[in-house]
């Protein structure tokens, strides 16, 4: 009986403690004037948002979520349950803008930017530039006697059979950028031919975008196609991985920011856009994330500068977003069952 009583008292104490701490979370932020809620798909986001709150006094509540998931959510709910959208694939932003989920906002801070990096009506603005690189597991490469591939052409060599990991481009902006970049620069015929040749070495396509790099860092395969920032992070964490910019062209993409229509805190959302496009915000991005900030005249870290200086493909990212459905259809027909 005594043990039961103790257990009951403990249980009640837990409940009471929980109730006491429950409303404290998030709720306060929602009610004070200066706050913003964000859907995010961006690495190194925590210190970036802390810098934002320090600089502007705006409190942030955020949820990390892939842009495909965000798009599905706002379609199902008929509205966004957040004020702003930060990072992720441009194609999702283009689709959301077409379906009327984004609120136009022309930030005064966007003046110095090249017009190719933002939507003229202000539906979205590019904040940083990411690229697609090759990531190899040094140990596995050595064990198998393989050289680190240096180009897309290298990936077609038969010795990499079943050792190349990629994700389905429909779930991953990175791989969509790769497919679209190769098709845009080589032309449809040569581009798809190259992709088919690489496909011969791919055991299967991962169904989540982050997986190829993670699995290669675990040694599950020798080479992954990976976003530059992920490759950098894995190296910094000490995994035995190496990175190569493909010699025959580095595909790239931009990470955008946008304000949702019907935002509960539109001032907060606009403050976020202003800040992230400003010199201060761009510097913070450059410091905590290894994508390249876009604002001209900014000093970049050496590794990031190397990425900007690498052989970036001549591709049109907005066109890539517009052509998405068609390109994916072709991809699906060729490799969809893998």
């Amino acid at each position: 009986m005594f043990r039961k009583l103790v257990a009951a008292v403990l249980f009640c104490a837990c409940l009471a403690g929980g109730i006491a701490s429950f409303p404290a979370s998030g709720a306060m932020a929602a009610e004070t004037g200066k706050s913003v809620s964000i859907f995010i798909a961006y690495t190194g986001i925590k210190p970036i948002l802390e810098a934002f709150t320090r600089d502007t006094g705006v409190k942030v509540d955020y949820l990390e979520m892939s842009s495909g998931e965000v798009l599905t959510r706002i379609r199902a709910a008929g509205k966004a349950q957040a004020d702003a959208w930060f990072g992720g694939g441009l194609d999702s932003y283009v689709a959301a803008a077409n379906e009327g989920f984004l609120e136009p906002y022309v930030s005064p801070e966007r003046a110095p930017y090249d017009a190719m990096f933002y939507n003229a009506e202000g539906l979205w603005s590019g904040i940083s530039l990411g690229s697609v690189v090759l990531l190899g597991n040094t140990e596995v490469l050595a064990k198998k006697g393989l050289a680190m591939p240096q180009s897309w052409e290298d990936l077609t060599k038969p010795e990499y059979k079943d050792e190349v990991l990629m994700a389905t481009p429909s779930v991953s902006g990175t791989f969509y950028a790769m497919v679209s970049g190769i098709v845009q620069t080589l032309g449809a015929e040569r581009g798809w031919k190259l992709l088919e040749a690489i496909d011969a070495n791919v055991p299967y396509y991962s169904k989540r975008g982050a997986e190829p790099a993670n699995k290669v860092s675990m040694g599950e395969a020798a080479v992954a196609v990976a976003p530059f920032d992920t490759a950098q992070r894995l190296q910094q964490e000490g995994y035995k991985v190496e990175m190569a910019f493909p010699k025959d062209g580095v595909p790239w993409y931009i990470a955008p920011v946008a304000v949702f229509k019907g935002a509960q805190h539109p001032e907060g959302a606009r403050a976020l856009v202003d800040w992230v496009l400003s010199g201060k915000g761009q510097a913070a991005l450059g410091e905590y994330n290894t994508q390249a900030p876009i604002r001209p005249g900014l000093k970049l870290a050496p590794a990031v500068q190397a990425m900007r200086d690498s052989n970036l493909m001549r591709m049109d990212v907005v066109k890539a977003g517009q052509d998405r459905e068609e390109t994916l259809k072709v991809w699906q027909e060729k490799f969809g069952s893998k």
Binding site: S66, G68, L71, T72, T168, S170, Y204
Partner: peptide, 25 residues
């Protein structure tokens, strides 16, 4: 199936991809 299925996929995982990836509601 998403994690270790490789090429082997089932209805549930394909439906997930159709929803999140392809966006065909």
């Amino acid at each position: 199936p998403l994690f270790v299925g490789g090429r082997f996929q089932v209805l549930a995982s394909r439906a997930y991809n159709t929803l999140i990836g392809v966006g065909d509601f």
